[in-house]
């Protein structure tokens, strides 16, 4: 098992944990962190799997760099919305009223 493959497997585990986190957690900050975990897992798979034979590959590295910037943008957007919601409602949870009827 090469180091690239180990990274890819770790990425799969992180991705699964992150996805479960986004689905299960209620606190918005935790969900945002879980989303970031998910993204990092996918990036690890992209980098690790492509370089599983030990040869460096610049293409996935550049893709991950792009992906990280997109994830930063998404995180900032999510944090801005969460903070505004906190300022309005005083809580970091989504109101339960019409949700949860089909959440997986």
């Amino acid at each position: 098992m090469t180091s690239g493959l180990i990274f890819a497997c770790a990425g799969v585990v992180l991705f699964a944990m992150g996805t479960a986190g986004v689905v299960l957690l209620d606190h918005l900050l935790r969900r945002i962190l879980a989303f970031n975990l998910m993204g990092s897992g996918a990036f690890l798979v992209l980098i690790g799997l492509a370089q599983r034979d030990g040869m460096p590959d610049p293409v996935p590295q550049a893709m991950v760099l792009t992906g990280i910037v997109v994830a930063v943008a998404a995180t900032a957007l999510a944090l801005a919305l969460a903070r505004r919601l906190f300022a309005l409602t005083g809580g970091y949870g989504l109101p339960q009223s019409e949700a949860k009827d089909g959440n997986d």
Binding site: P58, V59, Q61, A62, M63, L65, T66
Partner: peptide, 12 residues
């Protein structure tokens, strides 16, 4: 990596 980022896949 910079070549991929700004030239080959600069559109991304």
């Amino acid at each position: 990596v910079t070549a991929v980022l700004l030239n080959f896949r600069g559109y991304d």
